[in-house]
Simulated assay, not measured.
Amino acid sequence: MEHAHHNHEMAAVAAAAANQNSMNQDHNNHDMSGMDMHMAMFYHFGSIETILFSWWSTKSAGGIILSSFILVLICFMYEGIKWARVCWKKRAYEESVALGEHNAVPIQRKLTPAMIGDTALHALQLIFGYSLMLVFMTFNIWLCAAVVFGEAIAHLVFRFMYPDLERFRGFGGGQEETCCG
């Protein structure tokens, strides 16, 4: 019985395995179309970060400090939008009370400029909220601290400046809105 053909099959299997191993190594070494896949998935201190956009990157402690101040300003804009929406709801409620619309008259559904404005502000609020969440997900301690500090201070400032709006924060839905909506 001739067994010489078995060596050719074993060589083909070994070559296929080597080719597969080579392809796996090439797949693991490429950078997914220019994306840097070395993002830390743990809390860390550092000064080299990319924040939200490829052009917003830091390479020094000064860059992290400047970015932290910018993030605090974004937190103030986010909180400002939330409180502006509450102010609009309060004003609309007070106008409807003044017009006597809260009697036994059924509510008619109509699209108003105020509703469109509130929807636009809500969309902007979502963009800021999710962007701040993504910054937090860099797991950089300094950036996370900037987001938490910025949100806490901005919330305190707006709550102090507009104490009469506090009871209207959950107006309409019965609950306070979360960070992202």
Rank of each mutant, 00 (worst) to 15 (best):
D164Y: 04
H3C: 02
D31Q: 09
M133R: 00
A145W: 12
D118I: 02
Y93G: 00
R85L: 12
G63S: 07
H27L: 14
S33L: 13
A14R: 07
P113R: 07
N28C: 03
W55V: 08
I64M: 10
I141V: 12
A154K: 12
K82W: 03
A18L: 04
E166Y: 12
L132K: 01
F76N: 10
L165N: 12
M32S: 08
R159K: 08
D26H: 09
I116S: 01
N19Y: 06
I51V: 15
A104G: 06
G173D: 08
V135T: 10
A98V: 07
L99R: 11
I81Y: 05
A4Q: 14
H102P: 00
H44I: 05
A11D: 15
W88S: 13
V13T: 06
Y130H: 01
W88A: 12
G80M: 13
R109E: 10
V148F: 11
V157N: 07
M133A: 06
E95V: 00
S47T: 12
I74S: 09
H122G: 02
C180E: 15
K90W: 02
N28S: 08
F45C: 06
N21R: 09
A145T: 14
F128N: 04
N140E: 07
T178A: 11
Q108W: 02
S96Q: 03
M32L: 11
T50L: 06
T112R: 11
F139G: 01
I141C: 04
C144Q: 02
L143A: 05
L111E: 14
I81A: 12
D118N: 08
F45I: 04
H8C: 01
V86R: 01
M115S: 11
